[in-house]
Design a protein around this nucleic acid. Structure first.
Lengths: 170, 170
DNA sequence: GACCATAAGTTCTATTTTAGAACTGTCAAT
DNA sequence: ATTGACAGTTCTAAAATAGAACTTATGGTC
């Protein structure tokens, strides 16, 4: 696959993967949410090569997730800060962290705890339905093609047929 | 960085990135949630090379996200289905899809719409606090070191000092 | 019995990406 | 004049990926 065409796929997941779907971007964004803003600080705290860091920051700026803000003239120096589009990635980051908390912790326990300033308590993120407020599970969701759907199904024909037969026989 | 050590980092995000943080894994998992289960079907609907698909499926099985279930003997054939650990990735998938819906759609609109069977309405996913039920934003969350935290801060010293000076001067 | 199709991989080479280290340019402070 | 901070760029070697062909096992067709 050509990764520069992924962002044009008729799939919101694929388009988001074009932005954050490599090994470094999510780690860089984690640092952004932890208030890291400068090139050398990203480099030192992540151990990423400078080459790749420059490349990824450029990509995140191009996608409008980060913005370069000058913090000094002579020599020109910039900080990388999250745009609103970048801040909106927070639910993705939090759901990833939460899955890691549940399924990937070792005996020592969670590396980080999260306090909700609004209510003052330690919390976990929960994903709910915008309409009824109930927690979401994969089985309770049905998918419909939207206005931007591709004509042919993304599902391979033979798989479609098998699914159809299975539905008929049930 | 050696990617095989990422899963041992004292960071739940890094450990999850070890599982899903490459370009193909999330796309493979999208297919799983759309009921794709067989090798050739993954291959045909994604256009991934067979080599890489075999590799990624093996990795997802190793991490306990997918399970191989035999569906025929002679010759032995398997289907790949989501385990509970895999099903628990649903909030990550949904938050990624939602971000793409909001920030990456073109003029034609969303490729997919989601209906919540429980309430019967089209919905968007919302991330809320488990304790008070309020929607979460990055600014309303404060991070504390947990029992599994590393001794030294993940934040580079010079950045820490800058943050300290900034806090004192405010 | 020879031939083709299905399915789930494996093997091969060529290309692309990444790692790791060194280097560049600009300015401030000593 | 020298050193250090900062934000990159440039280089080569190593690793990952793409793309296509091949393998193994079985069942059905001519």
């Amino acid at each position: 696959m050509k990764w520069d065409t992924l962002e044009e796929e008729p799939c919101s997941l694929a388009r988001t993967v074009a932005v954050i779907g490599d090994r470094w971007s999510l780690l860089i964004l984690r640092e952004c949410f932890l208030r890291i803003r400068r090139f050398d600080d990203f480099q030192a705290s992540l151990g990423i090569t400078r080459h790749l860091l420059a490349d990824r920051l450029k990509k995140l700026v191009r996608f409008g997730v980060l913005r370069k803000i000058p913090y000094q003239e002579a020599p020109k120096r910039y900080e990388y800060i999250l745009t609103q589009k970048g801040l909106d990635l927070y639910p993705i980051i939090m759901s990833i962290v939460h899955w890691g908390n549940v399924h990937m912790v070792d005996a020592r326990g969670r590396p980080l705890l999260h306090e909700h300033k609004t209510c003052g308590k330690m919390f976990d993120p929960v994903m709910v339905c915008s309409e009824c407020g109930e927690p979401l599970s994969a089985k309770a969701v049905h998918v419909h093609p939207g206005p931007g759907a591709r004509k042919s199904s993304p599902v391979h024909a033979s798989a479609r047929e098998r699914a159809k037969r299975a539905a008929e026989s049930s």
